[in-house]
Design a binder for these strands. Structure first.
Lengths: 216, 216
DNA sequence: TACACTTTGTGAAAATAGGAACAAATGCCA
DNA sequence: TGGCATTTGTTCCTATTTTCACAAAGTGTA
């Protein structure tokens, strides 16, 4: 499988670049909080374990944001990154599966920083349907297609058991979803124009165990 | 920063290889459940969006596990992968921070598949300390070092607010922890001999938003 | 203005990862 | 047994990613 590449402005870069942009943005926000106005590529990458050249090259795909001999204006760069990432406008998302993880996510306040608003949630259990968590009403999963279409939601989190995740994916795609963040431990299939990203605790833990187990 | 590499048996491979091993293992277990005894590199990678050559190369770092003209014995390969990953023996871990995510993890049954046992949990809140969730007693975070050392725990999950995650990391390292799975949205610093892995919802979501925002 | 310092942006080089392709090994069937 | 069909393990080549290194551009000072 070829690594996915992204091409805009006649240049191509990898998804890794995009992930790093998020990291930069997070650190820049911290700096802004500390009232730091100017930062060099050297300083900002010291904390992140990324090389300064990488930082500069990542940004270079999108334009010139620094001033030679000076560095980068923190506030300005934050604005630019928010623009590049697309989080300068609100994104409404759905959560499918209101188990322990799903309900933790419904209550998670951190999303608003990225202009993400959980608009609706779905579950199959009679007990949960109709309940309201953190202002979000839990809908019957049978109405998934209808609600997603009506609300024109384009992004969804999947927090269901792995056995039903693929079925949910198919239904989400049919309903017009274009991006899925999958927490279920299963590799999902979807058309090429639907982006899937996996949060996989198992893999990460196993990686750590492998490393501890294979030292020296 | 150079990409981290792992070298054993005179060969070097990337952490990506290790992550893929986890994916292979997961699929092999599914096949075993379906009573499938033999599988080819072609078949198993079809589901995973990985090339057969990649699969074979990943395995080749650790030995020869297939039979030419035939394929791989599912059960045998599962055993081998468990051995390679180090999950053939029990790993006891700690969870620091019993908020919504932390308590969801304490109740998560999926760990046992990887021979992972949450041995202890820590929190700062008086309300939570002493409570037992899913058989796991919540300890006062002030006793972190003592308990970790006494129980000889080597792996920990961090589910605290980001502001305290670095301080917790420092204390865990002092107590002898060798691997950390970090859920807090912050880049943690630790000595080179301590492995850190991040589960970063924010980055993943931002990546999806970027992709949706930059189509065509 | 001249000169010494910084720091960016970027083309070129180095390092890394991925994939095609094929010899070697195995099974099957006539 | 011989020939054909599979499929692995591995080499070599290609593509991608990261880093190096330096010109260009800006600041500060005398």
């Amino acid at each position: 499988m070829p690594k996915s590449k992204i091409c805009i402005r006649k240049m191509c870069f990898s998804v890794e670049t995009v992930k790093r942009l998020s990291l930069y943005l997070r650190d820049l926000r911290k700096l802004a909080k500390k009232k730091i106005e100017l930062i060099s590529s050297n300083k900002i990458t010291q904390l992140l374990n990324i090389s300064p050249a990488q930082f500069r090259k990542d940004l270079s795909y999108f334009g010139e944001f620094g001033k030679r001999g000076v560095g980068y204006e923190v506030k300005k760069l934050i604005k630019k990154l928010e623009e590049i990432l697309g989080i300068n406008k609100e994104w409404r998302i759905a959560v499918v599966g209101v188990g322990r993880l799903g309900s933790a996510l419904l209550r998670f306040e951190g999303f608003s920083k990225f202009n993400i608003k959980i608009k609706t949630a779905f579950d199959i259990s009679k007990k949960k349907v109709g309940k309201v968590i953190n202002g979000i009403k839990i809908e019957d999963v049978r109405n998934l297609e209808r609600v997603i279409k009506k609300e024109k939601i384009k992004l969804s989190l999947i927090c269901t058991p792995p056995q039903v995740a693929q079925d949910i994916t198919n239904r989400l795609v049919r309903a017009g979803i274009r991006g899925i963040l999958n927490f279920a431990p299963v590799a999902l299939k979807a058309p090429n124009n639907v982006f899937i990203s996996n949060v996989d605790m198992a893999c990460e833990l196993e990686r750590l165990i492998f490393l501890l187990n294979n030292e020296r």
